[in-house]
Amino acid sequence: MSVAPVTGLVVGKFCPLHKGHEALIAFAQARCDRLVILSYTKPEFPGCDPAQRAAWLAALFPAAERLVIDDAALAAFAAEWGEAARVLPDNDAPEDAHRAFVAWVCRAMLGTTIDRVFTSEDYGDGFAAALARAFGDPVAHIAFDPARATVPVSGTRLRADPRLHHAFLSDVVRQSLARTD
């Protein structure tokens, strides 16, 4: 009897991608056969446009399936597939809007469902439950370092003072951000 491959999901703004994100992604990658990394944010943050986030993720996680989207990518997808145009939910939109959007991206854009979702956030259990309802199959939430003891940083802290927290950035991220200063 063969075991079905496990597909995992990590979702984030990655504005900027920091070593805490990297630790979460590496943790996820070690616990699934296929890892999908989804990045979106609305509004965008300076120095962290979709192309830049895609470059960081490609450089650091070449084996993962990476999807960095913005409203333009959604419009192009809709035009190509003859679907109604969608837009990204705003960062401050209700959790249910983000959960429904991610489920749609998985099904419509990636043609897949997810077995495991990996987060360092309190919302992880509810996120997994919402995906499970959308997919009609179980989705496990695997938490990674919710106390942020391993890498004590957040994107919000980094954006507030990137120079103070530069040690939490990989060289590829730090160098690209230095070019945008």
Rank of each mutant, 00 (worst) to 15 (best):
T7N: 11
V11D: 01
G12D: 00
F14V: 03
P16H: 01
A23P: 00
I25F: 00
A26C: 11
A26W: 12
F27Q: 06
R31D: 08
T41C: 11
T41N: 13
E44K: 15
P46K: 08
A55Y: 10
L57Y: 05
A58N: 06
A58R: 15
A59E: 14
F61W: 09
I69M: 11
A73V: 04
L74W: 01
F77N: 07
A79H: 14
G82Y: 03
A84E: 13
L88H: 08
P89M: 06
D90L: 12
N91M: 09
D92A: 11
D92S: 15
A93E: 12
D96I: 15
A97K: 14
A103V: 12
A103K: 11
V105E: 05
R107W: 05
L110C: 07
T112H: 04
T113H: 15
I114L: 12
E121W: 04
E121R: 09
Y123G: 04
G124M: 02
A128D: 00
A129S: 12
D137E: 15
A140F: 06
A140Q: 12
A140T: 03
P152N: 04
P152E: 05
V153Y: 00
R163C: 10
F168N: 02
L177K: 03
T180H: 14
T180D: 13
D181F: 15
